[in-house]
Design a binder for these strands. Structure first.
Lengths: 342, 342
DNA sequence: CTTGGATATTAAACCGGTTTAATTAAGGCA
DNA sequence: TGCCTTAATTAAACCGGTTTAATATCCAAG
């Protein structure tokens, strides 16, 4: 492909002038502009992205990083990404989906700076390698979720108030008379799991009861969500442990719970009530009975993260912010008063 | 951030040697390697991605382009992207999600080459601007779907055999005795809509009947899928046109059909049978009755596209291929023999 | 007719790497 | 010891843009 010199030669001007025509940073005489644009069209010239980036130090790309191994996007991630994409589109940024994290550290052959102006990181873990490996002079970072311990307050983040949500949900079930509530939490090493457990515990303890560890389950990341819900119910029920309500990590986990409950002859919400920590507004109403859940506003989470990031890209001295995206319980028909005589 | 010269100075070697240490393209004495790596670590040096790209002419990024306006990813796109991502991960590529297409052409201020080694394009349209605007010297392209008319055979593509699928589905419904089948197709300007209509027509015509245009509906891209299914049924039914079976473009469209049917007092599959042109293996079984559909293997579509593209990136003279990803009908309970006395 | 100031243009430096071609150092063999 | 070959290193050129600083051009005012 033709380069800027070819155009300059054909249009009988210097490289600099051609550059000025394209970047519009300095005045160029109209007739010269036309000559340059004609030459460019004739040669099918487009400025080379990499060369431009190298001297401008701006890529107009933002990165979206998720956990290395777990390269699969869920519905939640999808909604979130749609939010990010909308902002990208409005602001003229592109989105780079980064799955190289684990790969990169394998050999210094792949060491490089990231090709982005800033980064959005998903699903922070308790002891997150990605944050530790991060060099302080790198591009701005916004985290979706809560970074753990030492990193808290170090980075901008966008999150739901997961502890409050868990409190609300647990309280809702308590108010319905449920005492033994099974918490099918997400994987133990994610900070969101900690937050939700805390909210659950707060309510249980406040009610003067102690937390039954057998009712606090964490997901094994290698097991699909539906399986997780399905198997957990079977295992726990067959071990003799009883519960009258279940808080499931997501719609899919809840689906597994529905299936297991049906097999065990437990009616919903007659015998057990179910609440999900997510809300798939399209399919949740189709559950039988329709599933109650929490609207997390994943898309807003994504768009806020993108906005915050772009702000920081423009002004790196902007203060470290923590934005909370509001949530709301969506009550459908999967929970009812506790039927005490189990 | 430190650059290669800083490292060279500190390690008392030349730029070239530092480069050789990192690229591993030429031998360097072990003790020198160590000295360089130490210096690099000390200065927190990482090679600049864009400078490297500029001289190597390789970004190890592949682009995923979807329609400009319709920036929302569907479940199908999600599965497809998961397939692409898996291959990216395996092969050490990153994925750039491109929504700039429309933006880019607005002013030549944004004209640049794309920052990718190759591109995957989704949802080709009948008169696709993106293909027309494409310069022949650009990076390799793989299309998911069938490019229209003049562009057919010009590019590698990966696709389902949509005409064959439509034939199978229509034939299946014919065999159940259905004669008046409503086709809720996707938007008119997508090539996949044409292919599916053709398959539908083939079977109808072969059966010696003529195609009723009132039963061939196209989606308005601005309307959400569920609404599309819901409103179409209401409109067509209230216009007096009758049908005993519906082929819906996707699970979501089918969901809208279910809802409308319920409101009209039409039982499924008693009064009308429903078949979807997609298969959400998690939720489709939860429909009441469970929804029959077509497993399109979106993830395979994505991984095959990525493989094909990476092959072409490595060897641009590789032949133009068209890969067909197999599909299968998933029969559940949403269709039954036609109840002729409507 | 100068001079001053604003505007347009250009040559050269720069961004930060890789690669080529030349140079130096080291080892092998007669 | 001297010559040839091979390996390691380096200086300089290059990738293709943008930006800076110097220069050329033009017009108005003195």
């Amino acid at each position: 492909m033709a380069n800027i010199e070819d155009v300059a030669r054909l249009a009988q001007v210097s490289k600099g002038t051609v550059s000025n025509v394209f970047t519009q940073k300095r005045n160029v005489r109209p007739e010269v502009i036309e000559r340059v644009l004609n030459a460019a069209k004739q040669l099918d010239f487009k400025p080379n992205y990499w060369a431009r980036t190298l001297s401008m130090k701006e890529t107009r790309i933002i990165g979206l990083t998720m956990l290395g191994e777990q390269t699969k996007f869920s519905q939640f991630h999808l909604n979130l990404m749609n939010g990010v994409l909308r902002v990208c589109y409005e602001q003229g940024y592109r989105l780079l989906v980064n799955t190289l994290a684990a790969e990169q550290q394998r050999s210094f052959k792949h060491w490089t700076t990231d090709p982005v102006d800033g980064e959005i990181m998903l699903d922070p873990e308790l002891d997150d390698q990605r944050l530790q490996r991060r060099s302080p002079s790198g591009p701005p970072l916004v985290i979706v979720g809560r970074p753990a311990g030492a990193f808290e307050g170090q980075f901008c983040c966008v999150d739901n108030d997961n502890t409050a949500i868990a409190e609300q949900v647990t309280q809702y079930l308590f108010d319905l008379g449920h005492q033994d509530i099974l918490l099918l939490n997400t994987s133990r090493d994610r900070t969101v799991a900690v937050d939700r457990l805390r909210g659950y515990e707060n309510v249980v303890v406040k009610a003067g009861r102690s937390v039954d560890q057998r009712l606090c389950v964490f997901k094994d990341p290698s097991i699909p969500s539906v399986e997780y819900g399905y198997q957990s119910i079977h295992e726990i029920w067959s071990s003799g442990t009883r519960f009258s309500a279940v808080i499931a990590d997501s719609d899919k986990v809840a689906l597994g719970v529905y299936r297991a409950a049906m097999e065990l002859g437990l009616s919903i919400p007659g015998h057990i009530s179910i609440f999900a920590f997510s809300d798939d507004s399209v399919f949740a109403p189709e559950f039988h009975p329709p599933l109650s859940g929490v609207s997390l506003n994943a898309e807003t989470l994504g768009s806020e993260a993108a906005n915050l990031l772009i702000e920081r890209i423009k002004d790196n001295t902007a203060p470290v912010l923590r934005k909370i995206v509001p949530t709301s319980l969506v009550i459908r028909a999967s929970c009812s008063f506790c039927n005490s005589n189990q």
